[in-house]
């Protein structure tokens, strides 16, 4: 099959939509999706890192010796993570405080290292850019989907605004740790109902 930018970009939204099709990077998905705001913050931070690390790795793939490639990828990814960390602290302090540890942990998000190894190290820059952006935005959408369900049911709010009727008793299970696992499992089952293509 011929590789096109459109295809590489769009596959991240359905065919290998993380974290459902590509079951990687579960920790942030479970941890930060108690509020939509956090889901968006996490998703966009991950997209930023994924896009830039894909582009950089793809552009210097020829000069990286095979034996130290993983180490080089880690340095590059970690650099972008630290940039995100600093920028978030400077401009989105409250979200960065909410996400806390999980911003540092973008560095060990398997999706990013996985894309570097499986895609960016073998494909030209423009395709890697499309791949990184597509998968990153797909991941962001998944986070928004999960956090919307969890926030509305668990707190009765959406982006902090009350959306349920006044006497609605928040279903606190949804924002707790066990609720995160169950909710993700059920959404995954729902998505499995539809074929990949």
């Amino acid at each position: 099959m011929k590789k096109t930018i459109a295809h590489e970009f769009l596959k991240g939204f359905w065919e290998i939509l993380p974290p459902f099709r590509l079951v990687l990077g579960l920790c942030p998905v479970l941890a930060v999706t108690t509020a939509v705001e956090n889901g968006i913050g996490m998703g966009l931070s991950t997209t930023f890192v994924l896009f830039f690390s894909n582009v950089i790795i793809s552009s210097i793939k020829k000069i990286i010796p095979k034996k130290v490639r993983i180490a080089s990828y880690i340095i590059i990814i970690a650099t972008f993570v630290v940039i995100v960390e600093l920028v978030m602290k400077a401009y989105f302090f409250s979200i960065s405080k909410q996400l806390g540890l999980f911003i540092n942990l973008i560095v060990v998000n398997c999706i990013i290292l996985g894309r570097a190894e499986a895609f960016a190290s073998k494909n030209p820059i423009y395709l890697s850019a499309a791949d990184g952006l597509g998968i990153g935005l797909g991941f962001t959408l998944s986070l928004i989907l999960i956090s919307t369900i969890r926030e509305i049911l668990g707190k009765g709010t959406f982006l902090g605004m009350q959306v349920m009727w006044n006497s609605y008793e928040p279903f606190a299970f949804m924002v707790s740790a066990p609720g995160a696992f169950v909710c993700l499992g059920l959404i995954l089952a729902l998505i499995n109902l539809f074929p990949k293509k």
Binding site: P178, A180, F181, V182, C183, G185, L186, L188, A189
Partner: peptide, 22 residues
């Protein structure tokens, strides 16, 4: 059920385990 197989049921199970640890 087919749609729940593998990771989906694993996640739900993990949720119940987390509930026990709660």
């Amino acid at each position: 059920p087919k749609v729940l197989q593998d990771t989906a049921i694993a996640l739900v199970t993990a949720g119940l385990m987390a509930l026990a640890f709660y």
